[in-house]
Nucleic acid binder design. Structure first.
Length: 422
RNA sequence: GGAGGGCUCGCAUAGUGGCCUAGUGCGGCGGUCUUGAAAACCGCUAUGUCGGGUGACCGGCAUCGUGGGUUCGAAUCCCACGCCCUCCGCCA
């Protein structure tokens, strides 16, 4: 939810942001008008209410004709106050709708444009030179690590089993990520997979993302698509202490996504779109002035993980039109995918500035002890999808897969995963 | 699924129509006293929003789980809902 002060004091910045995203700049004026009309009806209500209260207080002491007169006047006022009050309620609804229609203000240096207008910030590592490229599914099936067929049999398309070494590999990866996060001062959390509507709405996923979200209709609850939702909700309606720097959580959870409208896309294996996967997510609460620096730290920690698993990757600065509604800036790390000769998103880190926290009412106290809205940030440290890149980049001609050094101790010292015969 | 209890300014509690401008205790902050500390005593101690000066200030209004209703007037009475807890039942 956008800051109304910004709309009042610097609407041009918001208009520019809307244009960069490819969205309506007029929405800014709609919001300004709603803000002003709300203020005027609030003023009227408060004046009437004030008169009603002060006259009402005189009634118990008044007698005779004075009392009659007061009663008559306050009775009138009661009706007027009621009308004014409903005008306020109406104006507030209008205001809120206009406010929710505007996504977060993008940071000034975010590239404008859509999905393909990202800027590559850096490319790290060497793409492997492979004579014969097997894709991750062929490799995974050879290792008896991935079972798509039975996933579909049991749960439908886009579900899978990780079996044996596949399950072990995921556990190793997530555990390594958790250890790294803990080393950097994060508090490890396992989080609820199911959340209340106000939490899901507060994190911004019920806007344009709504069709992506699983809803448990009978219970009016939602399945989370990332532990970001639960970790953002964790401190909702609280005033937290940020005086000693950002508060950091690492959430370990399964993630659920409907992937509506993506039928027929990326259907092979566990590449891009599956309904369920596991993730280790970083989440930071920070003072707004330190959010950009924290964002840089999050991306650095993602790169640390990528280098530990020895993957060639690049970092892109996502264009304005491809940002989620809560994000003011987003960096993605994409690993090389040999089987498709392209880059595959493995991590995504967003600076949501105060947008998400305003809606969830998450605040901190500034130097003067005054409550201020906090900034929130999130970033991926490892997911099931990383297995795809690891298998493909570290494959060997015989179908075996080299285990990156840092990961070996998490796999009982194994240096290579070898195909199972038969 | 059934039954019961609860929801008040950080925590704990008081408050059954106007004396509530929501009291008290704890905790926290500041001060007095003290060589220092403790104790004691004194003071302060929510959030949002609107308006005015637009500097750390002044005033109004709202908020006692949420939304309605009754009333000149609601923390208090009525209705609906939400959430938390306990017990019983059922259960991977």
């Amino acid at each position: 939810m956008i800051d109304l002060r910004l709309i009042r004091e610097d609407p041009d910045t918001v208009r520019a942001s809307q244009r960069a995203r490819g969205e309506s700049a007029e929405a800014v004026d709609t919001l300004r008008a709603a803000d002003e009309s709300r203020r005027s009806v609030v003023l009227r209500f408060e004046q009437l209410r004030s008169e009603q209260k002060s006259l009402g207080k005189r009634i118990p002491k008044a007698t005779g004709p004075e009392r009659e007169q007061l009663m008559a006047r306050t009775k009138e006022l009661a009706a007027e106050v009621k009308r004014a009050e409903s005008a306020v309620a109406e104006a507030e609804t209008t205001l809120q709708q206009a406010q929710l229609a505007i996504p977060n203000v993008v940071q000034p240096d975010v590239p404008p444009g859509g999905e393909d207008d990202y800027v590559v910030l850096r490319e790290v590592g060497e793409k492997p030179e492979l004579e014969k490229v097997r894709d991750h599914l062929e490799l995974g099936e050879g290792l008896r690590a991935i079972d798509m067929e039975r996933g579909a049999k049991v749960s439908g398309a886009r579900f899978y089993f990780l079996t044996g070494i596949g399950a072990q590999l995921q556990l190793a990866l997530l555990t390594m990520a958790a250890d790294q996060a803990i080393d950097h001062g994060f508090t490890l959390m396992t989080t609820p997979s199911v959340v209340r509507p106000e939490i899901m709405a507060g994190t911004g996923f019920l806007g344009s993302h709504a069709p992506e979200v699983y809803k448990l209709e009978a219970d009016d609850l939602y399945l989370v698509g990332t532990s970001e939702v639960a970790l953002a909700g964790y401190h909702s309606d609280e005033i937290i202490d940020l005086s000693k720097g950002p508060v950091r959580y690492a959430g370990w959870s399964s993630c659920y996504r409907r992937e509506a409208g993506s039928y027929g896309k990326d259907t092979r294996g566990i590449i891009i779109r599956v309904h369920q996967f596991d993730k280790l997510e970083m989440f930071s609460y920070a003072r707004p002035e330190e959010a950009a620096a924290e964002h840089d730290r999050l991306v650095a920690w993602e790169e640390e993980m990528l280098s530990k698993v020895e993957l060639p990757y690049r970092v892109i600065d996502t264009a304005a039109g491809d940002l989620g509604s809560s994000a003011a800036r987003k960096y993605d790390c994409e690993a090389w995918l040999p089987s498709q000769n392209r880059w595959l998103e493995l991590t995504s880190t967003s600076n949501c500035t105060t947008f998400q926290a305003r809606r969830l009412n998450i605040r901190y106290r500034d130097e003067n002890g005054k409550p201020q809205t906090a900034a929130t940030l999130n970033g991926t440290l490892a997911t099931t999808r990383w297995i795809v890149a690891i298998l493909e980049n570290h494959q060997q001609p015989d179908g075996s897969v080299r285990v990156p050094k840092a990961l070996q101790s998490y796999l009982g010292g194994r240096e290579v995963l070898t195909p199972v015969a038969g």
